Simulated assay, not measured.
Amino acid sequence: MRLTDSERRALEALEEQERVFRRGAVVVSEHDARRELYVVQEGWLHSAVLLGNGNRQIMRFHFPGDIVGISVLAFGESAETVTAVTDATLCPFDRDRLAELFERHPRLSALIFTLAVADRVTLADRLASIGRTSARARVASLLCQIFARLRLLHDGARDDFAIPLTQEDIGDATGLTSVHVNRMMRGLVDDGIIERSGNNVRLIDERRLSREAGYMDRSRIDTSWLPPPK
């Protein structure tokens, strides 16, 4: 979708301020009462909830271009804890700024709504994977999701990326222990499906990885229905 100059300026206005967060820094804590949202300018983050048994469930990974903290629109507080996976640069803005954008640019509001729906569907896919598939399929599905997002960011069909996640991060996103994650990743390497070197992961047999994961690519969204720019 091609943005008008007015729409582009409206989005750029959300990025007037910058804050740098170091790797491991908590950006927002669960249940914090707040009005701020953030545009991710650089870096990776994740949103997680703390469970009653003390375990952590990572719900989402965030990449440049994402809006973080959107739950404050509905509840006035954060539903998740947002943590920097890498050093990250975020642009904070008050939710009133988003209300102004929605009023002046209905097509952008429809686009943000569509992206939120796509995020919900992707999350539902992963929850179904966690609840009803094998450990190997869960790890494979998460890798497929991450690669799809990174390809959009880099505008190309690359088959290798640096993935700065620990085995604990992957385990908390898939409901597995770190030991189990290591075993599943090693199995994917031994079977010639991926290659690993440090944080770098290369897809060797993407078709097989997708098949084992039961993966549905949700990275492309339909914007044909959006209203015309105002």
Rank of each mutant, 00 (worst) to 15 (best):
R2L: 12
T4D: 06
D5G: 08
D5F: 13
D5H: 08
R8H: 11
A10G: 03
E12L: 11
A13C: 03
L14W: 09
E18A: 07
R19K: 12
V20T: 08
G24L: 09
A25H: 09
V28A: 12
V28Y: 02
S29V: 15
R35E: 13
E36T: 14
E36L: 14
Y38P: 00
Y38M: 00
V39K: 00
V40R: 00
V40Q: 01
E42W: 14
W44K: 04
W44H: 09
L45T: 04
L45H: 03
L50C: 12
G52Y: 10
G52D: 14
N53D: 15
G54Q: 11
N55E: 15
R56C: 04
R56D: 08
M59R: 07
M59C: 10
R60A: 07
H62Q: 06
H62C: 03
F63T: 05
F63A: 05
P64H: 05
I67K: 02
V68K: 01
I70V: 12
S71I: 01
V72T: 09
V72M: 03
G76S: 06
G76K: 02
E77V: 09
T81D: 03
L90I: 03
L90E: 00
C91Y: 01
C91A: 15
F93Y: 04
D94F: 10
D94C: 06
D94M: 05
D96R: 12
A99H: 09
E100R: 13
R104L: 11
P106M: 13
R107S: 08
S109L: 10
L111Q: 02
T114S: 14
T114P: 06
T114F: 04
A118Y: 02
D119S: 09
R120T: 11
V121N: 15
T122N: 12
A124D: 15
I130E: 13
I130M: 15
T133D: 12
A135F: 02
A135H: 02
S141E: 10
L143S: 01
C144D: 03
C144P: 05
A148Q: 06
A148S: 14
R149K: 15
R151K: 10
L152F: 05
L153V: 06
G156W: 12
A157E: 15
D159A: 08
T166G: 10
Q167Y: 10
I170D: 02
G171L: 05
D172Q: 14
A173I: 07
T174E: 04
G175N: 04
V179M: 15
V179L: 14
H180D: 06
H180L: 08
H180S: 13
V181W: 01
V181P: 01
R183L: 11
M184E: 15
M185P: 00
M185G: 02
R186F: 06
R186M: 10
G187Q: 09
V189Y: 03
D190C: 00
I194C: 02
R196W: 09
R196D: 04
S197W: 07
G198E: 06
N199E: 12
N200D: 11
V201T: 07
R202C: 06
R202E: 11
L203T: 01
E206D: 08
R207G: 07
R208S: 02
R208P: 00
R211T: 11
Y215V: 02
S219T: 13
S219Q: 12
R220E: 15
D222T: 08
S224E: 14
P227Q: 07
P228T: 14
P229A: 12
K230C: 06
